[in-house]
């Protein structure tokens, strides 16, 4: 049984397609691109007319950037904020918009969240884990690896485990929440066509925001020791 046949039996369809022996989930890709376009449109709308005195969309996006900026500054200091603002905001907006995509009504286009695919969730959490190392080594050089034996050498296995497990847990949390939400929505739609699924959609919209915030916050927390060690 091929990958495509296997997927067709599932509730969520990823449309796995094989290109020259490489399997890519095209549904996920379409939705990922759609999310990217929406994010770019939002940010472009917010930044196209840049006034010193903001108004409209610019105001909302700036408020939101200041909010994330405050979180970054309190965890990573001013330097971390300056360096990572674009990354953190893009991450948050992408996950947030992606999470809400699955809640859009399916008229003609079959909307799913790109984040309902473990590949996407890992595709976000692994770069975060790598970024921690890139910035750590860039800032502190090889001394960065000393953090594995802190506070004592005995913690070496725990520290290695932590760094390995973190991207997996972050990805699993995001992917699990969003996938479960979409599956439940489909099931509820089949059980009761009215009201109950709408309530669930409302709840899922909140979960979508919450999961985006949790993922972003965990990213900031994962990055903060790099900058804190630098300050100390």
């Amino acid at each position: 049984m091929g990958a495509a046949d296997q997927a067709s039996n599932e509730i969520i369809h990823y449309l796995p397609t094989v290109f020259q022996g490489v399997t890519i989930n095209m549904q996920t890709m379409y939705m990922s691109w759609a999310t990217m376009i929406i994010v770019i449109l939002i940010v472009a709308a917010a930044t196209s007319k840049r006034d010193l005195v903001p108004s409209g969309v610019q105001n909302i996006v700036e408020m939101f950037i200041e909010w994330l900026g405050g979180l970054m500054e309190s965890n990573m200091g001013v330097e971390g904020r300056r360096l990572l603002t674009p990354f953190i905001i893009t991450l948050f907006l992408y996950i947030f918009v992606g999470n809400e995509m699955g809640m859009l009504p399916n008229f003609g286009i079959h909307f799913t969240s790109p984040t309902n695919d473990i590949n996407v969730a890992l595709g976000l959490s692994i770069p975060v884990a790598l970024l921690v190392y890139v910035i750590g080594i860039a800032k502190q050089g090889p001394a960065y690896f000393k953090h594995f034996i802190k506070p004592f050498a005995v913690f070496l296995p725990l520290n290695i485990l932590e760094d390995l497990v973190r991207p997996v847990t972050m990805a699993a949390r995001l992917f699990g929440n969003i996938l479960a939400g979409e599956i439940l929505l489909i099931v509820l739609n089949k059980l009761t066509p009215w009201i109950i699924p709408d309530l669930w959609i409302g709840f899922s919209l909140i979960i979508g925001f919450l999961q985006a915030f949790i993922f972003t916050m965990l990213t900031i927390v994962a990055l903060s020791p790099v900058f804190k060690a630098l300050h100390n």
Binding site: I24, N25, S32, V39, T47, N119, G123, L124
Partner: peptide, 26 residues
Amino acid sequence: VNINATLIAQILNFIVLLAVLAKFCY
């Protein structure tokens, strides 16, 4: 839970998104 090349594609997607936004918006 089926990890495949989508992972790589997604990482590229995100890098492209980040690059576009960083250059033109942020």
